[in-house]
Simulated assay, not measured.
Amino acid sequence: MEPSKNIKRCCLLQVMILVGIQVINLFTRPAKFAMGIVSIIILGAYLAGEYLSLPETIRKVNTIVQILFQPFAFSYTAGTLLTLVTPFKFAPLVAFCILIWYAVSFLLYVQQFIAPITNNWLRLFWLIYFFQIAISPSAYFGIIASTNPWFGAFFSTGLIGAVAYTISLIRAMQAWHFGDLISLIKSHSKGNVLVDSVFAILVVLFIYSNLMNTTSWGKLSFLRFWRLLLGAMEAGIGEEVLCRFGILTLLLSFAKKLRLRIPIAIICSSLLFGLFHFLNLTEQSLPLTIYQFCFTAVSGIFFSLLFLYSGHLELVVFIHFVMDLLSYSATGNSSLSGNITLGDYQSVINLAVLMLALLVWMMFGKKRQVMENHVDLLVSKGNIKK
């Protein structure tokens, strides 16, 4: 699928503006000279590919470079803009507009470079790789905060990155002709009282498991709670869009012809969900991270079943958000602390047995048919070239 001329023209205009911003950055922030030069090289390579007659091999290499590094240049440019406007009195209003722009800035990039990808393995690689860039723009912005600590908290969390990733991934899935979330919501049949009750009980169980050290809640300042709230929203939106909508859908497409496609895709996506939390090793110890891997992998089974049965990703996002907010508020931090005991692992093992039992139970009768119908909506139109 070749992008239209209008899309290319819009991309060219956007990239030329970004280059101009980085040129200004070179003169105003000498300490960030190297980062500015890298961004200009990446964006300049794109302009060269569009305006110059380059050999086919170089054009292909340039396309790969743009797929991998153009999102980084976009993130760093947004950070540059935020830094440039911070000293001015109108900074909050302008910064808010920049954050909105950041949320939609990747759409042209997706349309031109990501939509034409037909190999599902490459698609899977991209959505995981792009998540790491888009979800945490503050890492590339190089910004501490603004003069307003409440607004500055927006810069130190990945919430706006999670929104940007969600918008981009939804557009990519549409371009790849996979099912959309609205179709799932509209297709849901009348709920089964028993199944709904089981899920409701399990939601309460998961929420209860995150209610630890409740006596520390009163020690949180309003600003600290605001930061934790933003962090929980980031995790709820970003992780569920990535793991339940993106990865789970692609894995279901891989296993489309297998009779056990649903349990295979659920278990594999849940393991990936758990593995992603090893990135937290920079903030917490290895034993705590291993425990977090076990818990999140097990909870991933529940989230996947709830999504495929209900057809409501927003429901799963909300539950994930509430769980994390309660956990963060109870400990006062988004990372784990303390020591892991044998009892903690026993609880995870019990939960794993319960989730596997739920997975087996959901594979029979009308429950399975409801999920099969939703899976068909997600993957039946997808291009499954491998």
Score class of each variant (00 low, 15 high):
1 M>T: 14
6 N>D: 11
7 I>K: 15
8 K>A: 06
9 R>I: 13
10 C>P: 05
21 I>S: 06
22 Q>Y: 03
22 Q>L: 02
26 L>R: 14
29 R>P: 11
30 P>L: 10
31 A>Q: 12
32 K>V: 14
35 M>F: 09
46 Y>P: 00
51 Y>W: 00
68 L>K: 13
68 L>A: 03
69 F>C: 07
76 Y>S: 15
76 Y>H: 15
87 P>R: 09
88 F>R: 11
89 K>E: 13
90 F>G: 04
92 P>F: 03
95 A>P: 13
98 I>S: 00
101 W>N: 03
103 A>N: 03
112 Q>C: 06
114 I>R: 03
118 T>P: 14
118 T>W: 12
125 F>V: 13
126 W>P: 10
130 F>E: 04
131 F>R: 01
133 I>W: 05
134 A>Q: 12
137 P>A: 15
139 A>W: 02
141 F>E: 14
143 I>G: 15
148 N>F: 02
148 N>E: 08
159 L>H: 07
162 A>Y: 07
166 T>I: 05
168 S>P: 05
184 L>E: 07
186 K>L: 14
187 S>V: 01
192 N>L: 08
198 V>D: 15
206 F>M: 13
207 I>F: 12
207 I>E: 12
208 Y>K: 03
212 M>S: 10
217 W>Y: 11
221 S>H: 11
223 L>N: 09
224 R>P: 13
232 A>T: 12
233 M>H: 00
246 G>R: 02
247 I>P: 00
247 I>M: 02
248 L>T: 02
252 L>E: 06
253 S>E: 07
254 F>N: 01
264 I>E: 04
265 A>I: 09
272 L>D: 08
272 L>T: 02
273 F>E: 11
279 L>E: 05
280 N>P: 04
285 S>F: 00
292 Q>S: 11
293 F>E: 07
295 F>W: 12
298 V>T: 11
298 V>M: 02
300 G>T: 12
302 F>H: 13
306 L>F: 04
309 Y>E: 05
316 V>H: 10
321 F>G: 09
323 M>I: 11
325 L>H: 12
325 L>R: 07
325 L>F: 13
335 S>C: 09
336 L>F: 08
343 G>L: 04
345 Y>C: 07
345 Y>K: 10
346 Q>C: 03
348 V>G: 06
351 L>C: 04
356 L>V: 15
369 Q>W: 01
372 E>T: 04
373 N>W: 04
377 L>D: 09
382 G>T: 03
386 K>L: 10
